[in-house]
Design a binder for these strands. Structure first.
Length: 347
RNA sequence: UGGGGCGUCGCCAAGUGGUAAGGCACCAGUUUUUGGUACUGGCAUUCGGGGGUUCGAAUCCCUCCGCCCCAG
């Protein structure tokens, strides 16, 4: 009897092709739309219905059963709540990593298994081998970073067939299968925030007040409308002109001040050491004699690690070269070649 | 009030008689399953106001307004 796989279908091309490929490979495929967010936001109608329809159409085309799981309450609490709390604390969270960790590869997996599935599948550009997480084959689309907090257990019950393809090939497959979503534009931005923008979104939940923007000489050069809206390394949105561009180098949430510099050599913009909290290792923790690379934000270059040490529940990493705009709250994902070792949250 | 300097797009800033550089900010687009970054494009019929000289002025002259500095 063929294995029963529940595919998380978002209504996009990648997950559509995932379902098609698995069906072609002989799996007993069921499509599932995860309803994580449906609320409209000022200036934007939540597209969940269209996405649901698209996913369902593809399921119909593929002649597979289709169902919807409603995780709105949990998502709201575990992802959105986390995100808002982090911003309030002055950090810059990565809600999509949290979504994968807590919703897709935990709630969805549990629900699917309880529903009779043997495995789940998603449209991520990453590969799974023997419970290990590997980068997607397409270096331009690799999404392994977003999966750096998934467990080995979950990986052993998951499939990501699209990770073996290049993005253009996936589009091509979608056309070949005649899928309704073949030409659908890639989504971008936090799934539920979409076009609205993080600032407008947060404004719905957090009270903010204007504060000072202070430059590298300690001079107040402008006003911002809430320190929590800004992230380290950010350039646009400060509204301060004159001479060179300014980049955010720090924040003081208590004083509600944002610190910027126009000097790209400013020491506050660069770091060679990083401290990671809440470590999560997919298979085994890294070893001090291993040779690892680290990625400190999505699509950032992999950086060479020269030293790694554990101190209780935090890990200290030394880099060969300095990174620009290391940001608290972001995940630092460790790589051993093409394998994702795990990650920690930048302190 | 004497003496000196200045006033060019929201900000910084070229241009000193030949018909408004550039940067920042901002806006749009591209890239992107976070926030960002980066890249591309857009952005002063007009040079503090008024008058004059000239074929022609932001650039010269007069005058008014507003800043700054040194004197006091």
């Amino acid at each position: 009897m063929s294995k029963k796989v529940f595919v998380g279908m978002s209504g996009g091309v990648d997950s559509s092709v995932t379902a098609a490929l698995l069906k072609e490979q002989g799996y007993d495929v069921t499509g599932v739309y995860m309803k994580n967010w449906s609320q409209d936001l000022p200036g934007m109608v939540c597209p969940w219905k269209e996405d649901y329809q698209d996913a369902k159409r593809v399921a119909t085309q593929l002649d597979i059963p289709f169902k919807m799981y409603d995780f709105e309450a949990e998502y709201r609490h575990v992802v959105v709540g986390y995100m808002i709390d982090e911003y309030k604390a002055g950090r810059t969270p990565n809600p999509d990593i949290m979504c994968n960790q807590e919703v897709k590869f935990k709630l969805f997996l549990q629900a699917a298994l309880a529903d009779g599935a043997d495995m789940i599948a998603t449209g991520h550009y990453a590969r799974i081998q023997d419970g290990q997480l590997l980068t997607g084959l397409d270096p331009a689309k690799d999404q392994s970073y977003f999966l750096c907090r998934v467990t080995e257990d979950a990986l052993r019950k998951s499939l990501m067939p699209v990770g073996d393809y290049l993005k253009p090939a996936v589009r091509e497959l979608a056309r070949k299968f005649g899928l309704a979503t073949a030409e659908k534009k890639d989504s971008q931005g936090i799934c539920f925030v979409g076009k609205v923008g993080i600032k407008d979104f947060l404004s719905q939940y957090v009270e903010t007040e204007p504060g000072n923007i202070v430059d590298q000489h300690g001079m107040v050069i402008g006003q911002h409308d809430g320190a929590l809206f800004y992230t380290i390394g950010q350039r646009q949105g400060l509204g301060v002109g004159g001479g060179l561009p300014y980049y955010v180098v720090g924040k003081d949430m208590a004083k509600n001040e944002v610190y910027v510099t126009a000097d790209l050599q400013d020491a506050r913009l660069w770091s060679r050491e990083l401290t990671l909290a809440s470590p999560h290792w997919i298979n085994q923790p890294p070893t001090t004699d291993g040779h690892y690379m680290v990625r400190t934000r999505y699509r950032a270059d992999l950086l060479e690690i020269t030293g790694i040490a554990q101190h209780g529940d935090t890990w200290h990493i030394t880099l060969k070269d300095e990174v620009r705009a290391l940001t608290a709250g972001q995940s630092a994902a460790l790589y051993d070649g093409e394998r994702v070792v795990g990650s920690g949250i930048v302190v």
